[in-house]
């Protein structure tokens, strides 16, 4: 909105939640619901002497993606690390339930979730955890109703804690190199298990374990894209058509996929061991590849699947 580049040319990592939406959807098509002028703000942050945000860090609404109606939600990763609170969570639950209810009545057939979150806000921990549970239920119900829920991850906060679980519940997942997806974040692991177990300052380690390339190679993400907003848009357009339905068969396929992954790589101590077993050449230099080189790699067979 205020950048010098057109919205779709902007870097996803640097862009705000609103800029990502502007560049992801067809130009000018976004209509916000419960916008900042409604001042649906957190009732909890003031008692911790924290300033709120007018949209509680989540922008929700509807728009067009390549001419098709979609619902969309984007987290602002710079406000409290994009973390889930009560209002923030309720906005997302409402959006997903609207998708579910509209599925059979000609409403949008897909929801785009632009996740950028460290997890649940410590200041509203109980309501935040409840929000995560409600969001997971709402994603499942929307998917059963036939809605494609697409997660797009590539912001500075990644998708951690409950945000990592929410991501894994989606029909399809798009990542960039900047993406990190996990449940327990690096600092949480270090705090609980010690620095010998996991050094959260070791950025190469963090990305080897949680990063977008690792997730893509092991089937934890369905598309790897370069970092522009346009790249995420192209991937979203391609994926909304092909998202798997949430059926018993899909769940069984997911169970088989995960069991096989555990069987193949369960004893690996670090990601390069996995690449080596998967037959990738030069597994120790995965992080040094350019995006083009990475995209040209032959993917291991477990990277692409009909599960999720």
């Amino acid at each position: 909105m205020t950048g010098l580049l057109p919205a779709h040319e902007q870097d996803w990592y640097e862009a705000s939640a609103r800029e990502r939406i502007a560049g992801l959807l067809d130009p000018g098509s976004f209509v916000e619901v419960l916008g900042p002028e409604q001042r649906a703000m957190s009732p909890h942050l003031a008692q911790f002497d924290l300033t709120g945000a007018f949209d509680d860090g989540l922008v929700v609404g509807r728009g067009l993606l390549d001419g098709k109606a979609v619902l969309i939600a984007a987290q602002e990763g710079r406000f409290l690390g994009g973390a889930f609170g009560e209002v923030h969570g309720a906005k997302l639950v409402g959006l997903l339930r609207a998708a579910r209810d509209g599925a059979k009545e000609g409403g949008p057939q897909s929801v785009l979730l632009l996740l950028d979150t460290g997890g649940v806000r410590l200041q509203e921990a109980n309501v935040g955890e409840l929000a995560i549970s409600e969001i997971i239920r709402a994603i499942v119900e929307a998917r059963i109703a036939g809605i494609a829920v697409i997660a797009l991850v590539g912001g500075r906060s990644g998708a951690f804690g409950g945000g990592g679980i929410v991501t894994a519940c989606c029909s399809r997942i798009v990542v960039s190199e900047h993406a990190r997806i996990s449940v327990s974040g690096p600092e949480v692991i270090e705090t609980n298990k010690g620095v010998e177990e996991f050094d959260s300052k070791d950025r190469a380690l963090v990305w080897r374990v949680t990063g977008g390339r690792t997730r893509r190679l092991t089937g934890g993400a369905d598309r790897y894209v370069k970092g522009r907003v346009q790249d995420f848009r192209d991937a979203a357009i391609a994926l909304v058509e092909k998202a798997p339905p949430l059926t018993i068969a899909t769940l069984q396929a997911e169970q088989r996929r995960l069991a096989e992954r555990l069987r193949l790589y369960g004893d690996a101590k670090d990601a390069p061991e996995i690449w080596e077993k998967a037959g990738l050449s030069d597994p120790t230099h995965m992080a040094d590849l350019t995006d083009d080189q990475f995209l040209a790699l032959p993917m291991p067979k477990e990277a692409d699947h009909d599960a999720r």
Binding site: G35, P36, E37, A53, F54, E76, F79
Partner: peptide, 18 residues
């Protein structure tokens, strides 16, 4: 009728204009 810019974060601010 309205615009918003910036972000509520450390060293920053968000401004809602109406």
């Amino acid at each position: 009728l309205r615009a918003i810019t910036g972000v509520s974060a450390s060293g920053n601010l968000e401004v809602l204009v109406e």
